[in-house]
Amino acid sequence: MAVQASALVGAPVNDAPGLLGLSGFGFNRAQSITFLVMLLLVVAGPFFLYPVLLMKLLCFALFACAFNLLIGYVGLLSFGHAMFFGTGGYLAAHAAKVWGLTPELAILVGTAFGAALGAVAGWIAIRRQGIYFAMITLALAQMVYFFYLQAPFTGGEDGIQRVPRGALFGLIDLRADMALYWVVAVIFLAGFLFISRVVHSPFGQVLKAIRENEPRAISLGYRVDDYKLLAFTLSAALAALAGSAKAIVFGIATLTDVYWTMSGEVVLMTLLGGLGTVFGPVAGAAVIVLMQNQLAELGAWVTVIQGIIFVVCVLLFRAGIMGELGRLLKVRL
């Protein structure tokens, strides 16, 4: 769907160059500082909050960043990203439990399958525009959901349970939460920086040109569908990476992660945090995950509250948390 990344456009901003070599990821000064703050929070976090909660947060943050790569920088609204998140989870869980692979290999397997599914789903979907693109991704995700519901290896309604965390490279035991936390933190940070690099790469420059004026890009000889497909595949792979990590963290892969509500949740996180902003998806994921944790005893009401947040966002804070904050401080975040 053609969505303007409103946070990228508008009032003049202070775009001083980045710090500490972070400009290699396209960060300006404000973004470099925000990154360092985020780094600090990631490192200090487990000393203040439950590591498992934080790992969940980081997995969802990476998932939202992957989704944002597609909508914020290519302008494509996927309403089926749960299929990649869930595929990562199922495949990583299966690889770790049944094949007995070490966790890093299991996560790699999940990511690879997510990328492959992304290439196929993307190939089918990207030739459609606007709402049709969203509908096709949703339809494909439903098909994938029914596949996992029926497939013998997924355990149906029960999912794959008691997935061992194993030992990293077969050496470092990850059964302790703190040990696993650092692995997840590295995965999140690497994924986050990778996305920033993609956006500020020669390829990212072409994506920007396509989003700004697609007919002109075509007239310059760009086969634009190839670029959209690569972006879609990268986004799917990263979503699957997040899902794989989550399955290893919780030792379980279930239908929840491939269900359409999960696709909706990642849209909400990204919108809440700020579509097309660098840090918005992380902020949005943090708010939603922490809120779900606080309000867990309210049961179904959580969904209602999320719905209200969604409506408020759309009506009042269209640029999201980071978009509005950036507007206030006159910087890009």
Binding site: R197, H200, Y227
Partner: peptide, 15 residues
Amino acid sequence: QRARGRSFDFWRSDK
């Protein structure tokens, strides 16, 4: 970039 290459390089800095 289109004529001379690098348009798919997603891992490099745009520098």
